[in-house]
Amino acid sequence: MDQQHQEHTADLPQTQRRLARRVTMVNGIAVLFIAGAAAVVLAANALLLVFACILCAILLYKLSEILARRFHMRRKLALAMVVGALALVIGLGGWAMAPQIAEQSSRLAQEIPAAVERLQTAVQQHPLLKRIASELPPPEQIVKQMGDMVPNAGLFFGGVLGAIGNVVIILFVGIYFATSPQLYTSGLIRLVPQSRRPRAREVQQELGHTLANWLLGKAASMLIVGVVTSIGLSMLGVPLALILGIIAGLLDFIPYLGPIMAGIPAVLLALSISPELALYTVLLFVGIQLVEGYVLQPLIEARAVDLPPALVIVMQLVFGTLFGFAGVALATPLAAALAVLVKMLYIEDVLGDRPAQKPKPG
């Protein structure tokens, strides 16, 4: 009896030490979580800018990797060729179309208020629509709110100068990241315990693979949507087709909400000419989105990650509320990255629900 009592007494310090370690671990996790949440809130714009730089680096790395594999050259040489080709295309395209883009942008800023006024005048003729329109703000306020979205689109600085600064930062930091990605990924992996580093490398590679495929597919989709929209609007006779097509292509980066934002000015301009033209413009945008949704989007998701539409829209609303327009723009790649992390770190590692290994052919 005394021996059992002594053994029980000896086990008490060990049990207390184990409990103390668990309490310390829980408290440490809580402190890290609070510190991380505070960092996200206080440095949200900077973190979004860093994520945009990472996306740019992933896209440049993937393009250079494809070029290097196809023509059997060094990847850094391929990266220099990719950057040079992109700079040449953007420079020549901007030089050739800059006067037309500047003119159409100025005209668009003048035409939208007039189109809103004409729409409100036409609405006044219908009792039900008149009642709805009476609750809407005046055209000047609507145009001001649309204009306020441009500075808010900046990730770090504000206004037009800030938008240009963001682009320069994203491009240069993206190029540095893409030149020596192992330098940065290895440093992050070294923060993980040695026993978990192989798994950390698997997660990092899957993240890069998923985001790279999504970016390649989305870039192709944006180009197609922009070109088809410009051609379609020109054929319909909608004014300012070039700048409207550029806007549609850029906003196509934002699934679901982007096409709606791009279609509003086009429909307003078409409505200022005739209701029939506005109807044809709506049908054009709907047709483009149907083709993208049933043809282009499945191809992107087949090579990247399948994100349910409801999840994407919820993420856009959440990130838009927290971080503004930049959060809406980056919500989809953020959702794709979070989906990979949840799948690999929680479903597979914590729950143990790993996909069955396919049998090797004999």
Score class of each variant (00 low, 15 high):
residue 331 A to F: 13
residue 231 I to D: 13
residue 192 V to N: 02
residue 279 L to I: 14
residue 318 V to Y: 14
residue 239 P to H: 13
residue 356 A to L: 09
residue 138 P to H: 08
residue 216 L to C: 03
residue 163 A to W: 07
residue 280 Y to Q: 10
residue 235 M to W: 14
residue 162 G to L: 02
residue 296 L to K: 01
residue 105 S to I: 08
residue 324 G to R: 02
residue 340 V to I: 05
residue 72 H to T: 11
residue 301 E to L: 04
residue 84 G to L: 05
residue 333 P to W: 03
residue 46 A to R: 05
residue 65 E to T: 07
residue 145 Q to T: 11
residue 132 I to L: 05
residue 295 V to L: 09
residue 13 P to R: 05
residue 277 L to C: 05
residue 25 M to F: 13
residue 161 L to I: 11
residue 42 L to C: 09
residue 231 I to M: 14
residue 48 L to E: 00
residue 243 I to L: 03
residue 347 I to N: 10
residue 17 R to Q: 15
residue 61 Y to F: 10
residue 125 Q to Y: 07
residue 149 M to Q: 13
residue 237 G to H: 10
residue 125 Q to P: 00
residue 131 R to F: 02
residue 43 A to G: 05
residue 171 L to Y: 02
residue 191 L to Q: 11
residue 3 Q to E: 07
residue 86 L to P: 01
residue 272 S to P: 05
residue 90 I to E: 03
residue 315 M to V: 04
residue 6 Q to D: 13
residue 9 T to P: 00
residue 170 I to H: 01
residue 170 I to D: 00
residue 39 A to T: 14
residue 274 S to A: 15
residue 215 L to H: 03
residue 131 R to S: 07
residue 254 I to M: 13
residue 146 M to G: 13
residue 220 A to H: 10
residue 193 P to C: 11
residue 59 L to Y: 12
residue 311 L to D: 04
residue 60 L to Q: 07
residue 177 F to Q: 10
residue 299 L to D: 03
residue 103 E to W: 11
residue 11 D to E: 14
residue 249 G to L: 10
residue 339 A to H: 15
residue 214 W to C: 04
residue 15 T to I: 10
residue 108 L to G: 04
residue 337 A to Y: 07
residue 213 N to A: 08
residue 298 P to T: 03
residue 263 G to Q: 05
residue 36 G to K: 04
